[in-house]
Nucleic acid binder design. Structure first.
Lengths: 120, 120
DNA sequence: TGAAAGTATAGACTATGCTCTACTGTTGTC
DNA sequence: GACAACAGTAGAGCATAGTCTATACTTTCA
């Protein structure tokens, strides 16, 4: 299928698909060299890839991380324990971020106190 | 004082100070017009401003937000309730972000489950 | 046949917060 | 007077994730 159909199938905009292609997350291929045009052709797998990318993004993976992972992940060149490890690492980084944000909350609480005490 | 001294006093790099100046967070002034050079001069208040900026950043305020707030805040042209309101709004946005991250954690947990069940 | 719609490429632009470079001018020290 | 150290401006570059524009070519359809 061509990019327009891919966009409709996946719900990802054409612009974004092109951006992903440039980033190495997906790959269309040219039809036979005899063809006059240089339109790219995408297969069903690419639709699934785009859905996987969407999921990975919602989990907090960056495009860079997805780019490094997607081929091994998609082609099952990564074992289950390795997959779990990647997910656990992301989990840890999210938890670290939550910790930072909670620290900020504390700082704000302290700041509020000082604002109030200035008042007196 | 000149920018080098300001940098040492505040612990903020010269580059960053210039960036803050361009962003409107601080303001040096030229000496008397008779002076030949166009070096900028900073007062004690600017040191304090830089420390305030550091605090505001650690609380999660962006440079843009700080730019919009710092003058009124620093010159006490903002009332205590207004200050508290600004802090509370930031608190809410941080809590919202924490919520998002917790959502991600749930998604990852689900993903881990599916990885494990694929295995079987 | 001619216009509309689709496709490709390259590159600019957005927001965020710096960071650094290039280049020029000034000041202080030996 | 020479040279280092410091000051200034303008602008590029990094990372992130797109988004959009300009330009050009191809395909489709009436």
């Amino acid at each position: 299928m061509q990019i327009g159909a891919l966009s409709k199938r996946s719900g990802v905009s054409i612009h974004t698909i092109r951006f992903y292609e440039r980033s190495g997350l997906i790959k269309g291929r040219r039809k036979a060299p005899g063809e006059r045009n240089n339109y790219l052709d995408y297969d069903e797998e690419t639709v699934e890839r785009l859905l996987l990318i969407r999921d990975a993004k919602s989990i907090g993976f960056t495009i860079g991380e997805i780019g490094r992972l997607i081929d091994v992940w998609f082609n099952d060149q990564i074992t289950t324990p390795e997959k779990l490890k990647v997910l656990d690492e992301k989990l840890l980084s999210i938890e670290a971020r939550i910790k930072e944000l909670k620290e900020m909350k504390k700082l704000i609480a302290g700041f509020k106190q000082s604002v109030l005490s200035e008042e007196c």
